[in-house]
Design a protein around this nucleic acid. Structure first.
Length: 110
DNA sequence: ACCATGACGTTTC
DNA sequence: CGAAACGCCATGG
């Protein structure tokens, strides 16, 4: 573990490429990395992203429906939503609005 | 090795 | 896309 696991490192690398004001899903990242059945591991990687030197925009990663399932892992009770709204993303009841339009698929852009 | 947990996703009702 | 059952797979006890 001293060295970053290759899989985790790839996840962080892709996450950092998500454009400002756009979002993607755990499954999309997993699929892009050739581990389509390991979407949960992407979430696990995000859980460890807080201790990294390089910051990871984990708030831009949501589930396939555009729901902020990981908001409770951020500090406070509403930080994830606030970060998204600060980028012009509209969130109502933990659900990203216009999700289809701001969704960024690494498989189609990398 | 077994069981529980989880920032997911698909299928089914 | 409500709710629940599975499937999936790394981690931890």
């Amino acid at each position: 573990m001293g060295n970053s696991d290759n899989f985790f490192e790839k996840v962080y690398k892709v996450a950092r490429l998500i454009p400002y004001g756009r979002v993607t899903s755990y499954g999309a990242i997993a699929k892009y990395l050739g581990a389509a059945r390991s979407a949960r591991m992407v979430g696990w990687a995000m859980n460890s992203s807080g201790s990294l030197e390089e910051e990871v925009p984990a708030h831009r990663v949501v589930n396939r429906l555009g729901i902020l399932t990981g908001k409770h892992h951020f500090q406070g009770t509403n930080l994830m939503q606030q970060l998204l709204e600060s980028e012009g993303i509209e969130v109502v009841d933990n659900q990203i609005q216009n999700f289809k339009e701001i969704f960024w698929d690494p498989s189609e852009n990398l």
